[in-house]
Simulated scan of single mutants.
Amino acid sequence: MTVTLSDTARQYIALFEDETGATARDCVVLDGEDGHGKRVVFVVKPGDMGRAIGPGGKNVRSVQDRLDANVELVEDADTAAGFVANALAPAEVRHVTISENDDIVAYVEVAQDDTGVAIGAGGRNIETAKLLVERHFDVSDIQLT
């Protein structure tokens, strides 16, 4: 699946990679209409998450300061199921099943105590995960079970 990046997203990826030394494969800018301020979500190459965060969170904080936005990181994955689990982190995802009937849907079993974490305030975490998994794997919906 081909991901199309806006000019702003390309600029943010360049800044992110310069500041962290990690490789970003995607960037989504969310304008903050949900009352939580501007958010920038980077999809990071597998294995680069530690480098992206940096010691004590130094690298990601530097990017946040430069962009004046809340920065969120999602580790890329080779499979839709792996990507969904990463997109819902830090919620404890126990199992992901991808159903490929008319629409491709991810059914996700989350630890009961982490349901709220997976959904997020006002549904923002699960909505971000849905946006990203549709961009990368053509999955149309995520359902928590």
Rank of each mutant, 00 (worst) to 15 (best):
K130C: 01
T4S: 13
A129R: 05
G47H: 06
D113S: 15
Q11N: 11
I104C: 08
A24I: 02
G54T: 02
A87D: 10
Y12M: 07
D103M: 08
D68P: 00
L30R: 14
G35A: 10
D48H: 12
S62K: 15
Q143I: 11
A14V: 06
D103T: 02
D7N: 10
R66D: 12
A14N: 07
E127S: 10
S140G: 07
A89F: 04
S99P: 01
D76G: 02
V74F: 03
I104T: 13
K58L: 06
A80H: 04
V29G: 05
F137A: 03
D103W: 00
I104D: 01
T97F: 00
A14R: 11
T128H: 05
E17I: 00
V3M: 08
L132M: 06
G56V: 03
N59C: 09
Q112S: 14
Q112L: 11
M49H: 06
F137S: 05
E33C: 00
I53A: 05
I53H: 06
D114Y: 07
A121C: 05
G122H: 09
E109D: 14
V44R: 03
L144F: 04
E109G: 03
L30Y: 07
N86L: 05
S99M: 03
G120M: 10
E134M: 10
V43D: 01
V117L: 15
I13K: 09
A52S: 12
Q143C: 08
T4L: 13
I53R: 04
E75P: 09
D68K: 15
T145S: 10
A80D: 03
L144W: 01
Q112E: 15
V44W: 04
E19K: 13
A81F: 01
F83D: 05
I142A: 10
M49Q: 07
F137N: 02
A80W: 02
E100D: 14
L15V: 06
E134F: 08
L5M: 07
N70L: 14
G82Y: 00
R51A: 04
G122S: 06
D7H: 06
A111R: 14
R61Q: 15
D65H: 13
D76T: 00
M49Y: 07
M49R: 09
I13V: 10
R10N: 05
N125Y: 00
V93E: 10
A81N: 01
Y107L: 10
G116Q: 12
L5C: 01
A91D: 11
L132Y: 03
I98T: 02
V3W: 08
T128Q: 13
N86W: 01
D78K: 07
A118N: 09
N101Q: 11
A80E: 06
R39N: 11
D141K: 14
A91L: 13
D114R: 10
G37M: 11
G35H: 09
A81H: 01
G120P: 08
Q112T: 12
A24F: 04
L131A: 11
